[in-house]
Amino acid sequence: MEDDGILGIQRPGDDADPRNSAATRYRDGNINLTGLWTYYCGIGGNADELALDAYLHEMMELPPLQMDLIHTAIEEITAEGL
């Protein structure tokens, strides 16, 4: 099928919403919520587990730094293959 680009225009890029990619990676990586929260807290994160859960389900915004730390935590956990 010919790609007319309409899909590409209408669909926002994967990185458009940082919550999106974090949520996807969280789901795909079989990461457990408590484990992720503990790791995130260990690298300096300040949001509680409930806020993290809400963020990962794209229901809540967090301060930029906290979002960065969550991404870092997901990346480091995934890299460790836990």
Binding site: T34, G35, T38, Y39, C41, G42, I43, G44
Partner: peptide, 14 residues
């Protein structure tokens, strides 16, 4: 074990 590791890591980072 996770919490112990987190506590140690957070001290270093802080």
């Amino acid at each position: 074990d996770d919490l112990t590791a987190a506590l140690k890591s957070r001290t270093v980072i802080d």
